[in-house]
């Protein structure tokens, strides 16, 4: 059975080099998919292409098998939540939420009923007659969501909807949004550059890099089994080392060892240990880097240390305080290393 929303070989270029290059993505009914990438990678362009604000050069966008790639935005049945909320300041909360229903020529009392339903759903009861300019950021966010959900869209499109909110409000809304999405069972595509947001909110994540989807998968899969150095780096394994994997399963750094295969190793700073300097060498179990603590940063739960070791610099998390300039070694368990061929692109 084909997917509910299916994007096939979509290419978009604003008359220059492609912003999206033959992107394909399938979204199942009721699924929330996060498009994750750094700014300028094309994730917002993909979302806007689904909404109809960007006309693709080639490729298809299918909703239940129907190609909508060249329909005007109003004929697509998608609903978008904008980064700036894009609430209409000259309308009340109720008028904002009811707008899409008026466009669909609903009867007046049906619209009123639906608005009440939405206000209740979003815990905005009694706010209907307020002007949207009187609302807080979090409340505006809810109104924007209510306005999008009111029309029961085929697909809900979210363009970094949390980026203008305070951290605390953002955390709250994130869980609320996820619970709501699962309860209504709406299909949603969520654009974000925040990996934590992508991990907590979505059923699947599509990581985008310079106009291409580089990996798609469940959050756990993307987090633990990145298929490229880019995804590993983006998902927080930002310590990168060139290693030589010798025949007996041991590691070596630098060019000291001849033979063996060269690999690019990534690991998370909290997966490594900082140990007192010793003569210990790398084993089959652990990679040991000898070095010196170059910088220490207090991060609340312990410290992060920048350690200069064997010609490379790595960040290590440790609970105890170590003075800068102290010789130390960094121990990385074999299982925490993500290895990629050396020609793969660094983050």
């Amino acid at each position: 059975m084909p997917s509910y929303l299916s994007i096939e070989a979509l290419t978009v270029s604003y008359g220059g080099p492609p912003v999206l290059d033959r992107v394909s993505l399938d979204v199942e009914r009721g699924e929330m998919v996060a498009l994750l990438g750094s700014s300028g990678c094309g994730k917002t362009t993909l979302l806007r292409a689904i909404a109809g604000f960007v006309i693709p050069d080639s490729g298809m966008i299918l909703i239940e098998g129907r190609d909508i790639a060249h329909l005007p935005p109003e004929a697509r049945g998608t609903a978008m939540m904008f980064q700036s909320y894009a609430l209409w300041p000259h309308m009340s909360v109720a008028d904002n939420i009811g707008y899409g229903l008026r466009m669909r020529s609903w009867k007046k009392d049906a619209i009123a009923e639906r608005i009440e339903e939405m206000l209740k759903l979003l815990q905005l009861e009694g706010f209907g007659s307020r002007s949207v300019t009187q609302l807080s950021g979090g409340q505006r966010q809810r109104v924007a969501l209510g306005r999008a959900l009111a029309v029961s869209p085929h697909v809900l499109l979210l363009d970094e909807p949390m980026s203008n909110l305070d951290y605390k409000v953002r955390l709250e809304l994130r869980h609320e949004l996820r619970a709501l999405q699962q309860r209504i069972g709406i299909t949603a595509v969520y654009v974000t550059h925040d990996r934590e947001e992508a991990l907590t909110l979505s059923d699947r994540i599509a990581v985008i890099d310079t106009g291409r989807i580089v990996q798609t998968g469940a959050p756990e899969e993307i987090f633990h089994r990145p298929t490229s150095a880019f995804v590993a780096g983006f998902m927080g394994a930002d310590n990168a080392l060139d290693l030589i994997l010798t025949g007996d399963g041991a590691f070596a750094t630098g060019a000291a060892t001849a033979g063996g295969s060269r690999v690019r190793a990534h690991f998370r700073s909290d997966a490594a240990r900082l140990a007192p300097a010793s003569a210990a060498a790398s084993t089959g179990e652990d990679l040991v880097l000898q070095g010196i603590v170059a910088q220490s940063v207090y991060v609340g739960q312990g410290y992060r240390y920048r350690v200069r070791a064997d010609g490379a610099e790595v960040w290590v998390h440790a609970p105890e305080r170590v003075a800068e300039g102290t010789p130390a070694c960094v121990v990385v368990p074999r299982t925490a290393l993500l290895l990629f061929p050396q020609d793969s692109k660094p983050a």
Binding site: T78, S84, A86, V151
Partner: peptide, 27 residues
């Protein structure tokens, strides 16, 4: 007038003319 306000209107089903009449012109 912020273009995203117009896009939001089109997105929710307004034709270009309706969008102009209900969003752009009043603002």
């Amino acid at each position: 007038v912020d273009t995203s306000l117009e896009e939001a209107s089109r997105n929710l089903g307004a034709s270009p003319w309706t969008c102009f009449r209900t969003v752009t012109l009043p603002l």
